[in-house]
């Protein structure tokens, strides 16, 4: 008698368990299905929109990686090859030479090379750049705006939520499709390729 009762009890428990199991299973499949419908096979990566960027300098400090994976990118197509480069020289620079005291970049990450009179070419040393955006501000204010901040995707670990996006005062960060991961202002990567 006692044994029979026990068996019955266990069965009831099993039955309830099975009921819950099936309903959880259906729930999971349901959520999966709903999300699958609105999902994209594409992966997303974080990128900042230079049009919204106000060069506050937080990209250099908010990134989870040290140094920041945000780097200055030089869009050579937009560069005026100026001698007096607003991105290279400090505003109060005494001489237009490569001496450290004249440079705007705190890490000397910009190399100035003479091309031909009166043009100079500026290259970014990615390893030195910390993404502070000082040169971007200078170039945007006085020049063509060919220096632009972008997330370097070789270095970015693609956090689920970008730590810089959270701190960005201009809300310039967004998820962009992986196959077109760079946004340049006034210049399209695609145009250049074709």
């Amino acid at each position: 008698m006692a044994k029979k009762e026990k068996k019955k009890k266990l069965n009831r428990r099993d039955f309830i368990d099975r009921g819950f199991r099936v309903s959880i299973g259906i729930g999971l499949v349901g959520i999966g299905g709903v999300l699958f419908k609105k999902s994209k096979a594409k992966e997303y990566v974080w990128q900042l929109d230079p049009e919204k960027c106000i060069q506050c300098g937080r990209c250099a400090t908010s990134c989870v990686m040290t140094p920041s994976v945000v780097k200055c990118f030089h869009v050579y197509d937009m560069c005026g090859y100026c001698d007096l480069c607003g991105g290279y020289f400090r505003p109060e620079a005494k001489n237009l030479t490569t001496a450290a005291e004249n440079q705007l970049c705190p890490t000397s990450a910009i190399v100035r090379k003479f091309v031909e009179e009166p043009f100079f070419e500026y290259d970014i040393i990615e390893e030195l750049c910390n993404g502070c955006g000082k040169c971007v501000k200078g170039c945007g204010a006085f020049g063509n705006g060919s220096l632009q901040l972008q997330v370097n995707h070789r270095l970015c670990v693609n956090c689920n939520e970008c730590a810089i996006a959270r701190d960005c005062p201009a809300d310039a960060y967004q998820r962009v499709p992986m196959d077109n991961p760079y946004i340049f202002s006034g210049y399209s990567n695609e145009e250049n390729k074709s």
Binding site: C79, E121, G145, N189
Partner: peptide
């Protein structure tokens, strides 16, 4: 007025070639 061509890109006489803007690809899908 961000990204305005205040100084047009010069035509080089010395045959200098402009380097490309490097955009490294993200981790492969």
């Amino acid at each position: 007025s961000f990204a305005i061509q205040r100084f047009p890109k010069p035509e080089f006489e010395s045959g200098h070639t402009q380097p490309p803007t490097i955009t490294p690809d993200p981790r492969a899908h």
